[in-house]
């Protein structure tokens, strides 16, 4: 897992264990405003563009899934 991503996530919600949680969206641990913040931070940090179509629970439910999306988008870009 990328440390920079974990830092961004922990900065947004320090109360969640992002390394193990796989229900970030399903359990409302990341709300719409957190997602807005998260997307802006990820785009800046990893120099990618996250299109709206990628904003689905499957991509945001865990740090691992987020990292998979970031890697995929970096390769596509």
């Amino acid at each position: 897992m990328d440390e920079r991503l974990l830092e961004i996530l922990e900065d947004i919600n320090p109360e969640v264990d992002f390394e193990s949680c796989t229900t970030l969206i399903d359990d409302h641990l990341l709300d719409s405003l957190s997602i807005i913040s998260l997307v802006a931070e990820i785009e800046e940090e990893f120099d990618i563009t996250i299109p709206t179509v990628e904003i689905i629970p499957e991509n945001f439910n865990s740090a691992e899934k987020l990292w998979e999306m970031i890697t995929r988008l970096s390769e596509e870009d």
Binding site: D11, I12, S32, L33, S34, I35, I36, S37, V39, A40, E41, E43, E44, I50, P51, T52, I55
Partner: peptide, 30 residues
């Protein structure tokens, strides 16, 4: 999401987050 993920809103969120923090920063675009 299309409105809040538009380029001007993303810029606004990044700027506001630095000044207002995690809680209130994204609230402006939101």
């Amino acid at each position: 999401f299309p409105v809040s993920m538009s380029k001007p809103m993303k810029k606004l969120t990044t700027k506001a987050r630095k000044k207002l923090g995690n809680r209130y920063g994204p609230l402006i675009a939101g």
